[in-house]
Design a protein around this nucleic acid. Structure first.
Lengths: 191, 191
DNA sequence: ACAGTACCAGACAGATCTGTCTAGTCTGGC
DNA sequence: GCCAGACTAGACAGATCTGTCTGGTACTGT
């Protein structure tokens, strides 16, 4: 049996163009602020094709969140985890990388959650899944780094990460890269 | 001359009802998700009255942000600042207070910024003004507390505050109050 | 008595949004 | 040859959104 049906549907060029366009627009301008008409126009896709791949806008928003999650996981996957301490620092260095990127507009998950108040909504659950993944990653690295209480230190690192993502967007403090490194090191040593 | 014109307009009962309703709805459900029709219906105000006080929705959104700023400043104003160190801890304790409040949905300024991408927009400038006020507050208290580099420590405390506001909403870590206190103390002693 | 204003009720216009539907093209597998 | 499915173009319906306008009531200061 060849890869028909769902598999092909997920890989179709039109679907990819829609998801790519939506990812760029949703992140840059917000989700409620971008309509379907604009997405299909910029993706060069017919409306029927869009609704063929995504039964409703919310499905597209979920796919957007999962796409952002995929991008984040891919970035982390490039990190060598042989040395857990170095890997933890590298994870946080990536925040500084992202913040320097032109068009940086904060954390896509925090921003999306701001637009979806209901914690039970599929969008929020997709966000939660990503945050669970990230926390599990931190706990694993911290355990391997010999942290006394990996769970609690992961919570503190989560606070630090969220804070860095927000502050680097809304305040743009100077010496962000050093601030990230110092704060991370302080938590890991003093944890 | 009596307090006519702008003064009276700002204090009118209808305007207050609109702003109060909008503040509750915008915070709870997001800004783009709440329409004018719903606000005036729940505030019990005629449409003409609304547009009499707020020429456009964006004016109301700006007033909402300033109202949230007023609420935040009022909360801080209750703190005794004789002891700057105690005052700093009290400011961060208020984050834990807010996070325990039923209906807590994160920081209204961070959430609003997520919906207004243009940093030059009036809404974003109102947000920036609040964040400037908060940073100035921290710098002042830190200086009086004898911090070596009040500006830099204020940046770190801003990261911490933003992180706590976000994480306490999206992760709800256990022992939040102790986490807030420990993290703040660590920054103040180690920073 | 009068002007000004704040207010209410609700129709209305015009734009935009989501989502459906029709009608037809192109391509790959059988 | 034939058919299923991915695709395009675009009309259409119905809801909702912002903002305007009409018309009328009530209070307030002069």
């Amino acid at each position: 049996m060849t890869g028909t049906g769902i598999e092909q549907r997920r890989d179709s060029p039109a679907r990819g163009r829609v998801l790519g366009t939506a990812t760029a627009l949703f992140y840059a301008e917000g989700i409620h602020a971008v309509g379907i008409d604009r997405i299909i126009a910029e993706a060069g896709v017919a409306k029927a094709t869009f609704y063929h791949h995504f039964p409703a806008k919310e499905e597209l928003v979920c796919a957007y969140v999962r796409e952002q999650s995929r991008i984040g996981r891919a970035a982390v996957a490039t990190i060598d985890t042989a040395d857990p301490r170095a890997a933890l620092l590298a994870v946080f260095d990536q925040i500084a990388d992202a913040a320097e990127f032109p068009g940086y507009r904060g954390c896509p998950f925090i921003n999306a959650a701001a637009e979806y108040p209901d914690p039970a909504s599929p969008v929020r659950q997709a966000i939660e899944e990503h945050r669970r993944w990230k926390r599990d990653l931190l706990v694993d690295l911290l355990r391997r780094d010999g942290a006394a209480d990996p769970g609690r230190t992961a919570d503190i690192l989560t606070v630090l990460g969220d804070g860095l993502l927000v502050t680097s967007h809304l305040n743009k403090p100077p010496n962000l890269r050093r601030l990230v490194r110092d704060a991370t090191t302080a938590v890991l040593n003093g944890g």
